[in-house]
Amino acid sequence: MKNGPTPWIVIAASMASLAAVAPAFARPAPGVPPLADFFEPATTAAAAPDADGFIRRWLLLEPVSKPNPTNTLFTGSYVRAALAPETFPGRFGAVPRDGQAAADGALRWHALDSKLWDVKLFNFAQALGKPKYGVIFWAVTVVDSPREMHDVRMAVGSNSASVWWLNGREAATLFDDRRMVMDDVLSDRLTLKKGRNILYGAVINGPGLSDFCLRFLDADGEPIRDLAIAVQ
C-alpha cells in the first residue's frame, strides 16, 4: 500500500477523516526518530564492511526534490533520465566533503556510518527535517581495495529505483517500483582496482520508505570484507 496508486490515497484519506471525528482514539503524534537512531558520524579512520560485506559508510546528500505521487512510472527510460550523471548537483565523479554545500547551497553532504546493514535514506531525510517523499538521494563512498580484484559483483537492493556507478561507469540499475532486499540486482563481473574506487549511487522515490543496501561479492558469491571504506 505504501507505494500504491491514487485509489489507496483516496481510501487512506477516508480513514484519516474517520480519525478526525473520533478524537478519543487519536494518539499523540510520535516524535521523529533522531538521526542517531540510524547513523553516527563517520570517523576519519577507514571502516571495513560489516560481517556480511555491507558497506555502511557513505556521504549522503540531502534529498533533491523530485515530486512523484507514485513509483509506478519508474521505468528504465524514466530512471535513466531522472538519475543521469548530468543531473548530479556537483561535479560527477568527485568525492564531496562532509558538510559541503550543493545545489547553490540548498543542500548539504553528510558523512555517516549506518548503524544498520542498510542505509535508511527516509530516516536520514526525516531526521534532518527534509522532504521524505518525491525525492532523489545521492550517495558516494570510496572503496579502497588492497589489491586488484577481478570478477567482482556489486550487489544492490534499493527502495525504490536506483542507479550505481563504479569509477564513473554504470554498474547496476534497479528499475520499476522496487522494495529493498539484499542481493536484488547484481552487476556484471567488474574489477575493483587496487587503491581507491569511487562509488556513486542515486535512489529515487515517490511515496516510499527510501533505503538501500550494497555489498561486493567475489566470484564464488562470497562477501568481500577486506576493503577499507572512506569518505575522504
Partner: peptide, 8 residues
C-alpha cells in the same frame, strides 16, 4: 540466478 533479479 545470482540475485533475486539477476541471471548470469
Amino acid at each position: 540466478a545470482i540475485g533475486a533479479s539477476t541471471p548470469t
